[in-house]
Design a protein around this nucleic acid. Structure first.
Lengths: 196, 196
DNA sequence: ACAAATTAGTTAGGTGCCATACTATATTCA
DNA sequence: TGAATATAGTATGGCACCTAACTAATTTGT
């Protein structure tokens, strides 16, 4: 039995400043190595976050997406349209169909054809779905709290601010063209809190 | 032609403090809403980061993983073993096989059977693979730099520090049991969460 | 009224990554 | 020496999410 199951050895895959500098020098580019380091670490963290999230929700028989559907339903008095859910969760309607399929198979939601509009099939949170949410809540939130437990209260506030701006910056990766994203001028950071 | 393809509307799917509080109150839990907000925003950011990264590398005919393989090869003088690559990138050997398959199909790497050990098939960065890396470097690094462009130099340092600790905290999601991660320095945090 | 356009949801097919189980080649040691 | 074991790499099948194309129902325009 070669038990070589690797359970995410978090020591590897953390990019170093040396690596960033080496890459930049190799091609003689004019970019800031520190900025590249931050960006690269961020991407690595994103990968790990996504993976960890799936592992976490799998404990409760869910995936990240399916959990979010259940929560969204709970916040909508137990009923919502697939298109609403897709919109609120930021996934496509096709993806939402798949999420609902699995949730329905597991008995956590059910579908009902609308009387008003024959195209609509609203999604309903079942008793068991609500129970599942309730059952997982203590552990779920305790783990979330533990995740940021290495930050003090004040640091959490700072991190929220910085993360917010970095999150805005993600679009620099997906935009058609590169727009230089200046650091809020010479003054201080502010505004940009679009919604809450 | 209902062109309702959504190209990641970054306004949605950002969790609010109100949502966090509501969820916590619903189940009468004893957790800090601010901490939950940070954790939730972080997970959302992770999802977006992963997605954006794939979009970004797709521009160059690569994926996140395949790009990392090429870079790792470049850092290893153009040759490495699949198991080494898997180890360094933090993916399974099975995943590495798939990554190499695609890279080989695209002519960016080639495989060569080892003379020493018949089980080994080392991976070699081809000329075209090196050219691809060189060609994409300017835009790639410019976009990475732009991603963190909303942060000042000092803020980047702070963010690196906080991100490092939060990244450590990710294991709180994947660990078997919950261990209450306290900020360095504080010896007691009066945390009465005896989940079993 | 009725064809054209829009909308809701689904199906089909693709990518990225993973875990499990397998093949083939060393290595160990009784 | 030869059976048991470990190791390198791969095949298989799964999940999450995507885009594009499709079906069915509703609205719109003349």
């Amino acid at each position: 039995m070669a038990n070589d199951n690797k359970v995410w050895n978090q020591n590897d895959a953390i990019p170093s400043l040396v690596q960033s500098k080496r890459q930049i020098e190799r091609y003689g580019l004019d970019v800031d190595a520190q900025a590249i380091l931050v960006a690269t670490r961020l991407l690595a963290a994103g990968t790990r976050l996504g993976h960890a999230s799936e592992v976490h929700f799998a404990r409760f028989g869910l995936s990240t997406g399916r959990y979010r559907v259940l929560v969204e339903l709970e916040d909508s008095e137990g009923e919502a349209l697939p298109s609403q859910l897709a919109e609120n969760l930021g996934v496509t309607r096709a993806t939402m169909t798949g999420l609902i399929d699995t949730l329905e198979r597991d008995g956590l939601v059910s579908r009902r054809t609308s009387a008003q509009d024959g195209r609509q099939r609203s999604v309903i949170l079942t008793e068991e779905g609500a129970r599942r949410l309730q059952a997982m809540a203590p552990e779920h939130f305790a783990r979330l709290e533990a995740m940021v437990g290495l930050l003090s209260i004040e640091e959490r506030g700072v991190f929220l601010d910085l993360l917010g701006r970095v999150t805005q910056g993600i679009s620099a990766l997906t935009d058609e063209t590169i727009e230089p994203n200046k650091p809020a001028g010479e003054s201080k950071k502010k505004q940009h809190r679009s919604k809450g």
